[in-house]
Nucleic acid binder design. Structure first.
Length: 379
DNA sequence: CCCTATGATTCGCC
DNA sequence: GGCGAATCATAGGG
């Protein structure tokens, strides 16, 4: 139906044929064309617009309007770009840092997922909270991206709509391309303000989640029985030098299912508390030394170059043996486990304090300590 | 609710 | 950076 029924003389534009054209031979043709056009659009308004467009005074009027507008219109594009907003930058950075900005990667170790301190891949207590945290974060991320997509799409649609409108209007009123651009940038800035709000609220959500998560992590949880046992075993079997090396800490962490820093904390606390009130730990000490002695002693005596230390409290007592005779007794029982290799005693410190690990570890203890522990613990 | 145990944090020192 | 010491904050038992 749309196929040209008859040869139409080439015309620059259909609007060049005003309805008021003088009658002629091809008047009917022109009329037909016009009718065809109006039939196609079937819009009276369109026709009127068209008529207006084709008015012979139009171009003159248009140029006058343009001139006037050029004179009167204030330069519209003064505030082209906002300065790169610091706050927005912060928001972006944070979203990026939290892995919200990126599309989600569901692989292992994709977006930085709170690295665990234990390289051995121990099942941490935090794993549940971690997964919970990540699930919530992923939820936030999903919402963020879907909202962002919605806004962007709306922005695109609106922009094209307005652009088309302006282009359309540019036929009847002077609309420069700069104006259109300005309008577009205005739209974009409005939408980016909305996006900024979205980012803000997303950030807030992440912060809330984060603080809740950190609070949860901050909550103290007692170690598992196994962890405590592992730690205590090492502590009491190395009473004379309870400073595990980094490797040993890792080993202990792995065995106890805790992190290395937790091991460090534990030993820090244990040393100080033991030292403060040795009597209180007597029972525990005998328990663990009894336990470990059966294990350690057999192993040690069977395997390694270890010698049983002479049960002399002075030589091997860990700490302030300043007073308390029964404490000495206890320590004597405890300390026999610590083998000073080659008969060299580790901490004959007069004042009974543990020697600093920096000096004692490399020089005298390593073979004895880590060796004995590793042979104990590795299987 | 109080008290103790205990894991974590902070600060100063070396 | 690791440690001791003090301290905080919570779990858990009575």
């Amino acid at each position: 139906m749309a196929a040209p029924l008859r040869p139409v003389p080439p015309q620059p534009a259909p609007r060049r044929s005003p309805p008021t054209a003088p009658l002629g031979h091809d008047t009917s043709d022109v009329l037909q064309q016009i009718m065809a056009i109006t039939d196609q659009s079937l819009d009276e308004a369109q026709a009127r617009k068209h008529a207006l467009n084709c008015h012979r005074m139009k171009s003159a009027l248009f140029s006058v309007l343009s001139e006037i507008k050029g004179k009167t219109a204030v330069s519209v594009q003064t505030q082209e770009e906002d300065p790169p907003d610091a706050q927005l930058l912060r928001l972006d950075n944070m979203l990026l840092a939290e892995g919200v900005s990126r599309p989600e990667k569901r692989g292992r170790g994709g977006a930085a997922a709170g690295s665990t301190a234990t390289p051995g891949g121990c099942p941490n207590d935090n794993s549940i909270e971690h997964s919970d945290y990540r699930a919530k974060l992923s939820q936030i991320r999903q919402i963020y991206h879907s909202e962002l997509e919605k806004y962007e799409q709306a922005c695109r649609e609106f922009t094209t709509h307005v652009t088309n409108l302006l282009r359309e209007q540019s036929r009847v009123r002077p609309v420069s391309s700069g104006e259109i651009e300005h309008m577009v940038s205005t739209i974009h800035s409005k939408f980016s303000a909305i996006q900024r709000q979205l980012k803000q609220s997303t950030c807030e959500a992440v912060m809330t989640l984060r603080s809740r998560f950190l609070d949860a992590r901050r909550k103290r949880r007692n170690f598992s029985k196994q962890a405590t046992e592992v730690l205590n075993e090492y502590f009491y079997s190395h009473l004379s030098n309870p400073y595990p090396s980094e490797e040993t800490k890792e080993e202990l962490a792995r065995k106890g299912g805790i992190t290395v820093s937790q091991v460090s904390n534990w030993f820090g606390n244990k040393r100080i508390r033991y030292k403060k009130n040795t009597g209180k730990f007597q029972e525990e000490a005998t328990m663990y030394t009894g336990k470990t002695s059966t294990v350690t002693k057999t192993r040690v005596s069977g395997g390694q170059t270890s010698c049983q230390s002479t049960p002399s409290p002075d030589s091997c007592g860990p700490f302030p043996l300043t007073s308390g005779s029964d404490m000495v007794l206890t320590l004597r029982t405890l300390a026999f486990l610590q083998p000073p290799p080659g008969g060299v005693c580790l901490q004959p410190l007069a004042h009974g304090s543990w020697q600093r690990a920096t000096t004692s570890q490399p020089s005298s203890s390593p073979a004895g300590d880590s060796g004995s522990f590793n042979s104990d613990a590795s299987d």
